[in-house]
């Protein structure tokens, strides 16, 4: 039946959809093109094609320090958010406890809450306990905010898992620990890798929470942010192009992994909004 529907042509709608894609990709294309522009970030037509901005970029030590900081923060944030998101997803899927609904909402809140509120509240906490702002506070912030992403991703994986294998393992005398490592964990491996990739990318790009928790050392987005105030050169286009390349490749791998285990169209962003999506089917 869908064949009949889908073959019906809708030239107007098709054109409109193409225009929306054009709108979505236009700034990205401009950005990339001007990273090769010899005569500055604006102006038309771009002229004097050059790799100078990339050359300048590779010689820019403080930028690479920021890149390194961002990678360290992102790696630890992945560890924190998976380390807590995995038990959180298991708890939401399998345990009943008082305040479960509140717990679910609290975990997911940072997904939809503007970053400024998460950032500010954490700032108050850290200042309150006398912690100096540094990459440590930034990492704790990212880790905490991204537990939401880890939980939704892993929860989706759990929902697709065949429960019978775990039951069999337990019935055959394996304890919970053994069952977890032999059955649950291997089954969730793809979900965990996918979640890690997405969290890594999101942490690398995070700016709203970081803005409030940053100390002396900058992450990459904050380094770019501070340069934007000092006037812009296509060097920023060049680093942006590299960031885009990096995020696009990780996002595509994430998507591939994800569609291997579950059907598409159920991303964390959506899980946070659709109330049904995080209420366990088996309880």
């Amino acid at each position: 039946m869908s064949g009949a529907l889908q073959s019906s042509r809708a030239p107007l709608l098709t054109t409109y959809a193409l225009l929306v894609y054009a709108f979505l990709y236009f700034p990205i294309v401009v950005l990339v093109v001007y990273s090769f522009n010899g005569s500055g970030v604006g102006g038309f037509p771009p002229s004097g094609w050059t790799f100078d901005w990339y050359r300048q970029l590779f010689a820019d030590a403080s930028l690479w320090d920021a890149v390194l900081n961002s990678f360290i923060v992102a790696a630890v944030a992945v560890a924190i958010s998976l380390g807590l998101g995995l038990p959180a997803a298991l708890a939401l899927d399998r345990a009943q406890f008082p305040g479960k609904a509140l717990f679910r909402r609290l975990v997911l809140l940072p997904l939809i809450l503007p970053g400024i509120i998460t950032g500010l509240s954490l700032l108050m906490l850290f200042v309150g306990v006398g912690m100096k702002l540094s990459l440590v506070t930034v990492t704790l912030g990212h880790g905490t905010a991204l537990i939401s992403v880890a939980t939704t991703e892993i929860f989706a994986g759990l929902q697709k898992m065949d429960r019978a294998q775990e039951e069999a393992s337990l019935d055959l005398g394996a304890n919970h620990w053994k069952t977890f490592w032999r059955i649950t964990f291997p089954n969730l491996k793809v979900s965990l890798i996918a979640a890690a990739l997405l969290i890594f990318t999101l942490s690398l790009d995070e700016i709203a929470v970081t803005f409030f928790l940053i100390g002396r050392d900058n992450t990459l987005p904050l380094e770019i942010w501070s340069r934007l105030r000092r006037g812009i050169t296509p060097e920023i286009n060049a680093i942006s192009t590299l960031i885009l390349l990096f995020s696009i490749s990780t996002i595509l791998i994430w998507y591939r992994l994800r569609t291997r285990t579950q059907h598409a169209g159920e991303s964390p962003a959506e899980a946070a909004m659709l109330p049904s999506s995080l209420e366990g089917e088996h309880s």
Binding site: Y21, L24, Y25, P27, I28, V30, L31, Y34, G40, V41, G42, G43, F44, L198, T201, L202, D205, I207, P221, I224, W225, L228, I232, I236, N237, S240, I243, L244, S247, I248, I251, L252, W254, Y255, S267, A269
Partner: peptide, 26 residues
């Protein structure tokens, strides 16, 4: 093609518009 811009850097996209709309922009 839609989820790429969804998860791609906020700052990068904001910056791109800055270079497009500026007084000596694109």
């Amino acid at each position: 093609l839609v989820i790429i811009p969804l998860w791609a850097s906020y700052l990068v996209r904001g910056y791109a518009w800055k270079t497009i709309l500026g007084s000596d922009g694109v």
